[in-house]
Amino acid sequence: MGVGDPMGMPITHIMTSGMSGIRAAGDLVARMEMSKSMRVGDAKNYVAKKLGVSTLDLSDEYVMRELREELGIGVITSVAGAPKGIAAKMNIEKLLDIKINCCEKFRQKIR
C-alpha cells in the first residue's frame, strides 16, 4: 500500500483485504511470497500444509490464536514466557523450512 493517514490507508486495506498479520497467519504467507517468490495461492497452500490447517484457516483468528501459541511462533497479545521477537522467528524458520536473516545474524553473534 502507500501514503495516506493510518485509518484511511493501512487500517482500511487490512480490514478489507489483509490477512491480519500475527493475529492469524499473514506474516507466514508473506514470508513465502517474499522468500520464494510464491504466488499467493501457492504460498497459502505451503503454509497451510506446514501448519496442518486449511487455507481458509490462515485468516481465522480463532484457529490461529491457539496454534501460534502452541507452536511458539508469536501471538499478538501478551503471553508471559511465550517466544517473542527473534525467538519466535527461529521457530518460524523451522516451521516453514526457511532461513531468516536476523536469526542467522543472531546465531553468528553467540559464542
Partner: peptide, 22 residues
C-alpha cells in the same frame, strides 16, 4: 460504507512510507 473480500481471498499486505504515517 466498507466492503471486504470474500473469506479465503485475503492477501498479505506490504507497506511503503514505513512509520512516517504515524
Amino acid at each position: 460504507r466498507m466492503v471486504g473480500v470474500e473469506a479465503g481471498m485475503e492477501v498479505p499486505v506490504t507497506h511503503d512510507i514505513g512509520t512516517i504515517r504515524l
